[in-house]
Amino acid sequence: MNSLPPNRHKSGKILLLRNREGILEAEAADYSHGPVQLICTFPFSYPEQFISVRTSDGEEIALLPNLLSLDSFSQIEARLELDRRYMIPRISRIISIRRKKNQWIWIVNTTYGDVTFWMDHLHENVSEINECCFIVTDREGRRYEIPDIGTLDPHSRSEWNKVK
């Protein structure tokens, strides 16, 4: 491989692969950038779009408009990396939101499995990203994403509408 100075590349020219140590690396044309990190520039609004590929020094070498612009192998590696970089479970179903004493107890299904968590105040722990997307923070600071409240099942929406 040549040691060309790192330039910004078009997404179609970028290959993402893992090295022997399991660290994600990027290659473009005949130049290897070494270990890279992927940054979602819109982790909630566009989780698979506008992905910034950066070297370990933080220098951006590409801004992928969409993961689909990568080859299929790189896409798999990119998703794997993003799943591990953004540890924010997505809520797929709200079983119940109820209040016990001064605690709000949430029982939900998430991409990380079924979970029950609690919080003190709804008004301080549910924040709006946009009209449909919300971030719920539990008492210990874990965040959960509701990507689109409108696409949840009627029971989940009814539980949500009771309190918000």
Binding site: K101, N102, Q103, M119, D120, H121, E124, N125, R139, G141
Partner: peptide, 10 residues
């Protein structure tokens, strides 16, 4: 961030 209101019911 939050007060621990556990056990601090009505």
């Amino acid at each position: 961030v939050l007060p621990c209101t556990h056990g601090k019911g009505k």
